[in-house]
């Protein structure tokens, strides 16, 4: 799979403050790429560099096989975290204006806007002024304006903020549909559950440095540590617990079930497999629950940032 965007050794500082330190990233075409990191890590600076709002001090960005240049802004759609609209302008006029700034012709923009407004059921807002709209309504319009010119690369910074769960779901489905249609998406958020749901790749930036990147599934594989959640019905739970503790690392587990079986989180030692554990457990009682603990994006995030 080709990379749509490659950043090579990008550094950027503002005065004495280093916002990005030698960051290299590869964003494969047709994927949803999660750009994660704590507040102030340098994500926004990186996104602004892609949008050519600021320029890197050193390093370069390659877009679609070419050095990033000003014509590329037409192939990028950007929904910033801090976003707004002109308050006293009418919705339709404003959407047309923003679409034309992205290089669309007026008639083309009108046609596409009509399609999107109908699709998101906001057709009757065309002549309303933005100040009459609620925050969520304005967010919908911003979303439409971002995707309208069918960009190759979409950048969403906290796209779900301000949406109620129904509309957030609507937008999530739209993002997935855009990916299906071949767009590449950079997705920056602090909501780890949406990272789990949406992202194929992630990169983690902390204190101006990239500290982790790759396919989400590969990263999870790297972070698995042979821990299993186990439920077992046994006559003498305390004895079993002690017995298990001599062989494995055992902690209490929390999960929902119907019975009041013993719930444990068991980490395997080097050289053991899941089968070894399972076979042993079947001799001790009735196994009701046996599942590998896959590290969540949230856990990976926290652990990696802390380790740094």
């Amino acid at each position: 799979m080709a990379n749509l965007l490659v950043a090579q050794n990008v550094s950027k500082s503002f005065g004495d403050y280093t916002a990005l330190n030698n960051v290299s990233l590869e964003i494969p075409e047709g994927t949803i790429f999660g750009l994660l990191g704590p507040n102030g890590a340098g994500k926004t600076t990186f996104i602004r560099i892609i949008n050519q709002i600021t320029y890197p001090d050193t390093g370069k960005v390659i877009f679609n096989g070419e050095d990033l240049k000003s014509e590329h802004v037409q192939m990028i759609g950007y929904l910033p975290e801090e976003r707004g609209l002109y308050k006293s302008m009418k919705v339709g006029e404003q959407a047309l204006y923003l679409a034309q700034l992205k290089g669309m012709s007026k008639s083309e923009a009108q046609k596409k806007l009509k399609y999107w407004f109908e699709r998101l059921e906001i057709g009757d807002w065309w002549n309303k002024k933005v100040q009459e709209l609620s925050k969520g309504m304005a967010q919908k319009i911003q979303f439409v304006v971002t995707v309208l010119h069918e960009p190759k690369l979409l950048i969403f910074d906290e796209p779900f903020s301000g949406f109620d769960p129904i509309n957030a779901n609507l937008i999530k489905d739209e993002i997935l549909r855009l990916k299906e249609n071949g767009s590449t998406v950079i997705f920056s958020t602090h909501r780890m559950e949406s990272v789990e749901e949406l992202c194929d790749h992630i990169a983690l930036i902390n204190k101006s440095n990239k500290i982790l990147d790759g396919k989400l599934i590969d990263i999870k594989r790297d972070f698995r540590n042979g821990t299993y959640e186990v439920g077992i019905e046994t006559a003498n739970p305390d004895v079993l617990k002690k017995e298990l503790a001599t062989k494995f690392t055992v902690t209490k587990a929390q999960f929902r079930s119907l019975g009041d079986e013993l719930k444990l989180r068991i980490q395997l030692q080097e050289g053991h497999t899941a089968n070894d554990l399972l076979m042993y457990l079947t001799t001790q009682g009735l196994v009701t629950h046996f599942v590998e603990v896959i590290p969540t994006a949230n856990e990976i995030f926290i652990e990696t940032v802390k380790r740094n």
Binding site: Q52, I53, P80, R83, G84, L98, K102, V145
Partner: peptide, 18 residues
């Protein structure tokens, strides 16, 4: 100032040069 306070500025300068 209006463009700054309404926060439309970043949307616009991702399309045109400041």
């Amino acid at each position: 100032i209006e463009e700054k306070t309404t926060r439309i500025i970043e949307v616009i300068i991702s399309s045109v040069r400041p």
